[in-house]
Design a binder for these strands. Sequence first.
DNA 1: GCGTTATATGCATGTATGCTCATATAAACA
DNA 2: TGTTTATATGAGCATACATGCATATAACGC
Lengths: 114, 114
Amino acid sequence: MISRKKLPRPLSADAMALIARRFAVLSEPMRLRLLHALFAGEKSVNELVALTGGTQTNVSRHLQTLTHAHMLTRRKEGLQVFYAISDPSIFQLCELVCGSLEKQFSRQADVFAR
Amino acid sequence: MISRKKLPRPLSADAMALIARRFAVLSEPMRLRLLHALFAGEKSVNELVALTGGTQTNVSRHLQTLTHAHMLTRRKEGLQVFYAISDPSIFQLCELVCGSLEKQFSRQADVFAR
DNA sequence: GCGTTATATGCATGTATGCTCATATAAACA
DNA sequence: TGTTTATATGAGCATACATGCATATAACGC
């Protein structure tokens, strides 16, 4: 009988580069702010500019990056373009990282509290 | 009665920068190769150099980065230094990203197969 | 057609960071 | 003490990328 324990899959160097690229897309604060703003649902570029406080140029560039990484979908309607999160795993990724950071900080807080 | 649906927590710009930093640490192929090599358990620097094919200098630098990010622990024993994964959420993060990439590629494969 | 609004992009610049070479530290041992 | 082995680090270089300015494209109304 084969063990049911979940094993890490073997990963090629190519696969590793793809995964790294995906993490890189998530490694910019402005892109995270955009994703966070989109958690509630699709928004136009102008709305995102207002919500994040970025310049129009910069917001547009980052939206392009996120779309090329297949994390967002783009829908044009008249003059406006609406973006929305297309990859639900984004939510889980952020939750995981948040949880891990919270643990780390609460441990550090414990040390200071002694 | 309060809804039980899991809501995304509100995130400050500072929190966002911390999360981004964490993703940035995971966004280098060599660091992912090191983490992957450590999935099976702790290893010395020399072993990691052999397993990843990197130079000693470079491997040492990346191990330092991962350790400062609290993803690895460092244990010195005689001349050797052993590193091990200290944050179990790393496994889940990689699984999530791998799964999401697999879905993306199988969709693309479908398109080509038509 | 012309002007206006929403979004995208070419170019230039600054900053961050990965990589390598040489050298430094640190521990073991003769 | 001097030598060897394992790991870390300082300096310099190259590259990637985020940002802003100006301008281009695209859709709408007149």
